[in-house]
Amino acid sequence: MTTVKLYGLLAEYKDPSALIHAVEKLRDAGYKNFETYSPFPIHGMDSAMGIKDSVLGWIVVACGATGLASAIALQTWVSVSAYRVVTSGKLLFSFQAFVPVCFELMVLFAGFGAVFGMFALNGLPKLYHPLFKNHRFRTATSHGFFVTVESSDSRFSLEGTARFLQEIGGLSVEVVEE
């Protein structure tokens, strides 16, 4: 038999308010590798958990700039060198006429950046996760509010952390295996 590795502890809380208060205490107690789970984003949770702002904006700006640059390059190259046809008396390089496609490609690339950048930052798609084995956790996408503390946290101890989670309002504390 293989030894089962420990993922961490899972605790359920009553409502968004209880969750946010619990998290503030976890943070103040010095825990780092913990995470909350809720069926909707909770206002103020990011600062309660003490996590840094998302960097997604920069990814999107970079992608948008790439889209814009490719649109300019594509249109200029096609119109000025690859397929030189004068239409409706316009110059081969008519920047005015290139604006619509520039805009569209900028938005398209930026949109890809937003969606796939979000996936990348979140490590999705990830069809298997230890938490999925937990029965109680299934309500996390409907009406349950959870905290996990991972065993990799330096302050983690099975009994100590479990007791702490209970003290800060945890309704149930369960062990999650890898």
Partner: peptide, 13 residues
């Protein structure tokens, strides 16, 4: 795609 409602995910989401 393996969504589990983690707050770090919600933030980027």
């Amino acid at each position: 795609v393996g969504w589990r409602g983690a707050n770090r995910h919600w933030m980027n989401y």
